[in-house]
Amino acid sequence: MSYQNSGAGVLDQQVCRLSGSQLWVRGPCVVPKAPYVAFLGGSETFGRFVQAPFPALAQPLVGRACVNLGCANSGLDSLLNDAAVMRVAAAAETVVLQLCGAQNLSNQYYRVHPRRNDRFLAPSDRLAALYPEVDFTEFHFTKHLLNTLLRISPDRFSQIHSALRDVWLDRMERLLRALQGRVVLLWLRYPEEASQEVGGGLGADPLLVTRAMIDQVVGGGLGLIEVPVVAAAAQAGEMERMVYGPLQAPSAEHMPGPAMHRLIAERVAERLCELG
Rank of each mutant, 00 (worst) to 15 (best):
A56Q: 15
P53Q: 02
E270V: 00
H161R: 15
F39E: 12
G245A: 08
S21F: 05
R64G: 07
G9V: 00
T210N: 03
A163E: 13
T148H: 15
E193A: 07
G199A: 04
A91D: 15
F157K: 00
V209M: 03
L164Y: 08
L57K: 13
V30E: 15
S251H: 13
Q216A: 13
G9D: 04
N104S: 13
F157C: 08
A52K: 05
V112I: 03
A234K: 12
R119S: 14
V112S: 12
G9R: 03
A122K: 11
A204S: 13
A163M: 10
N147T: 02
S251Q: 09
T94G: 07
E240Q: 10
L222R: 11
G221L: 06
L247C: 00
S74C: 11
S43A: 03
E93Q: 14
L105M: 09
E253M: 07
R177Y: 11
R48G: 05
S74G: 11
E238F: 06
L149G: 00
V243K: 03
D125V: 08
A204Q: 02
S78C: 01
V96D: 13
L188N: 05
A236K: 11
L185G: 14
D12R: 07
S2V: 06
E44T: 09
V167L: 12
V167P: 02
C16A: 03
L150N: 13
S153G: 06
G201F: 11
R171P: 00
L97Y: 06
P256Y: 07
Y109H: 06
L169C: 08
Q13L: 09
S106L: 06
G42K: 00
L97M: 09
V183I: 08
F139W: 04
T210W: 08
P35R: 12
R271N: 11
A38M: 10
Y190K: 05
L186W: 15
P55K: 03
V218T: 06
R151I: 09
A178Q: 14
A249R: 15
Q22S: 08
I152Q: 07
E266F: 01
S2L: 08
P228K: 03
S195K: 06
V10R: 14
C29H: 08
L207R: 05
L224E: 04
L40I: 02
A92G: 11
A91M: 11
R151V: 11
Q22L: 08
L247Q: 14
P60C: 04
N73Y: 15
F49L: 02
H140W: 07
M239N: 07
T210H: 02
G63N: 06
P258Q: 10
H113N: 14
E266H: 01
A122Y: 10
H140V: 06
G237F: 01
L208R: 05
P32Y: 12
V183L: 09
S21W: 07
V134K: 00
G41N: 10
P60H: 06
N68L: 10
G200F: 09
V25G: 00
V95C: 09
K33I: 01
L23M: 12
E226G: 04
D205F: 13
L76N: 04
E274W: 15
W187E: 09
L61A: 04
L224R: 09
D215L: 04
L272F: 10
S162W: 00
E138Q: 15
E192L: 05
L130P: 00
L164F: 02
R126D: 10
A90V: 00
H261R: 07
V67L: 11
F39H: 10
V50M: 03
R111C: 10
P55R: 03
R48K: 14
R241F: 07
A234N: 05
F46V: 04
T137A: 15
